[in-house]
């Protein structure tokens, strides 16, 4: 099969998937962050810069201005690149964040821009809120359609080393105008246990109101000095994920690979910098 034929086949599968499994839906909440991707996105209870996409309550762990860039190429299809730019600024009462992400190409694309705020209430509890504008562009008559979406999350540590997180995306059930297209409502809940400074094990459940529940589990191992390795697995469909991370002074570099059973491999990269 020639290169072009292979491409066509991919397109065919993708269209099938869009219709049958809703891998993509208008205004879907694609996760950001290669650390999380390496742990199969079992990350609703974790806290770092990328919490801005998984659970804004996790932003409170940042004590310095931090910026990050994320890039992934879904199934290595050139037109399915996804990238995001994020920034988080600790302020007097909490942490403010902003993010913008872009998926697609000139004829079809989705842009999500969000303003986040995380606040901690003592050591054991933090809460976060985000306001997004989700825009979908399709060339032709459809044009630009967008909606305002709310996200909210909580993180707590009821006993030492046990982290619990919950996050809801679009609780107010916003819709993309005109065609009555639903932006999904997604509830994520997860528990992680930090066995030592070196190992953290996370388990998460994600439920889109209209989709089958997704169970995810991931582990991160601080294997050597500044070096991390990660792996994870999720269901519906079953996907395996692997990742590595490296910290150098104020820079953190993460890389991950996930494997979709039908659509193949997706690489993820992220880079963050503490100012």
């Amino acid at each position: 099969m020639g290169q072009m034929n292979m491409r066509k086949f991919y397109w065919f599968v993708l269209i099938l998937v869009i219709h049958d499994f809703h891998v993509f839906a208008v205004g879907d909440n694609y996760p950001v962050g290669a650390r999380q991707a390496g742990m199969a996105n079992a990350a609703v209870m974790l806290s770092d810069l990328w919490s801005i996409s998984h659970n804004q309550a996790g932003l409170v762990s940042l004590d310095k201005l931090t910026i990050g860039f994320f890039h992934e190429n879904k199934f290595i299809v050139s037109k399915y690149a996804y990238q995001a730019l994020v920034i988080a600024v600790p302020v007097h009462s909490g942490v403010l964040g902003a993010s913008v992400s872009y998926f697609g190409y000139s004829s079809y694309n989705e842009i999500k821009a969000g303003l986040a705020y995380g606040k901690s209430f003592g050591k054991i509890l933090s809460a976060g809120l985000q306001l997004d504008y989700c825009n979908t562009y399709v060339t032709g008559e459809y044009g630009n359609r967008g909606a305002l979406v709310v996200e909210a999350g909580l993180q707590s540590q009821p006993i030492e080393n046990l982290l619990i997180g919950v996050h809801v995306f679009n609780p107010l059930r916003a819709k993309i105008a005109v065609y009555d297209e639903n932006i999904p409502t997604i509830l994520r809940m997860g528990v992680a246990y930090r066995f030592s400074d070196k190992v953290i094990l996370a388990v998460e459940n994600e439920k889109d109101m209209l989709m089958k529940p997704v169970f995810k589990t991931g582990i991160e191992y601080h294997i050597y000095k500044n070096f991390f390795i990660r792996t994870g697995v999720m269901t519906n469909p079953t996907q395996l994920c692997f990742g590595i991370g490296y910290i150098m002074n104020d820079f953190q570099f993460d890389m991950a690979v996930s494997n979709h059973p039908e659509l193949g491999i997706t690489p993820h990269f992220s880079l963050s910098y503490h100012l």
């Binding site: 909580l154 707590s156 009821p158």
Partner: peptide, 10 residues
């Protein structure tokens, strides 16, 4: 079920 403080349970 976690009672984080006397005032708050999750």
């Amino acid at each position: 079920s976690s009672h984080l403080s006397p005032d708050l349970s999750l």
